[in-house]
Amino acid sequence: MSIVLITLGGTIAMGGVDAGRPGVVTRLTGADLTAAVPGLADLGVPLDVRDVRAVPSASLTYRQVLDVVDVASAAVADGATGVVVTQGTDTLEESAYLADLVWRHPAPLVFTGAMRNPTLAGPDGPANLLAAVRVAAAPAACDLGVLAVMNDEVHAARWVRKTHSTSTATFASPNAGPVGHVIEGAVRVLARPERREPLPRVDPNRLDATRVALYTVTLDDDGLLLGGITEGHHGLVVAGFGVGHVPADLAPLLGDLAARMPVLLTSRSGAGSVLRRTYGAVGSEADLRRRGLLDGGLLDPYKGRILLRLLLAAGLGGEALDTALARFR
């Protein structure tokens, strides 16, 4: 049994400052992180530590995340029991979801990080890393897909959200709850969501060239920011009100866009699904579907953007695109 630890920087590794500049920056290596975790050596699980990069997660790219998936896949093929990835929490939910869409192995791939950096009282990084290693090594965590482990909770990547800017309890799965917990050092899996067939590998160059915009609808929205969006993008995700509504004046514009590119309708609410046929007014979910917008279901806007970009980069369109979306929404 062995676990590979891949480090990408983030708050969990921010243990230093730059002269003349306020705020902490990444300074800690994977060896530094593991040395700061009480009880980690007592697990008896060999750790293969790999420092891949050290950047704030706000600067990560799809290509870099998929490169990490490749490293993790090779590690599992070489016999690793599981893989843990440490990164900043700003984009952890997106990185984990992107990885989950292409992760083909039963072995756990676990993302974790920290909300309090190591220079503060009560940093949560050591506890989160210990819990993540426990989960990655646990037979019960196999075949759950990609997981996010924070605050002794185990979340499926497909559902997890960052819900608070500073709280150590920020990560939650509003639509489903955690799939498990770490209790007195034991991994307890309480729910086993159905694994979906992962997407085939996408050519990185095609992925880089495929652009999907995200537009959040607001009160009295004039839609001016949508002007010219088709010139630089291949798809659009709309984060609508509630169950998928927009101002009536915006509906014709979105319909015109849907005739020229895939437009995926999601909710900005933070939990729950867009509907399909409950409301019928202009700008309602039923009206927008009649105008050609695609149903985002339970996908939040951020996950919807990731999924749509991967599907478009794979060359899907029309009915094939809608069928593929239906597998994940």
Rank of each mutant, 00 (worst) to 15 (best):
H155D: 09
G270A: 11
G240L: 08
A141C: 09
L129K: 09
V238M: 11
V49H: 09
P22G: 02
G23I: 10
F328T: 00
E194D: 12
V71F: 03
L321Y: 10
A172K: 15
Y302M: 00
A320S: 14
S167R: 14
L190E: 15
Y302E: 07
S173A: 14
A99Y: 05
G39Q: 07
T210E: 12
G297P: 06
L8V: 01
T11F: 12
F111M: 07
L92S: 04
A186E: 15
V243S: 14
V182T: 11
P108D: 03
H181T: 12
A191K: 13
V263A: 11
M261P: 02
V49S: 09
A35P: 00
Y62I: 01
V65N: 10
L219I: 15
G185F: 13
H233T: 14
L316I: 05
R50N: 09
P108Q: 05
A186M: 08
S267P: 09
A74C: 00
P262K: 08
A156K: 00
D203A: 14
T119I: 10
D322I: 00
L254S: 10
V83E: 03
L219Q: 14
L47T: 05
R309Q: 14
G292R: 07
A58W: 04
T91F: 03
N117E: 11
P200R: 12
R188M: 10
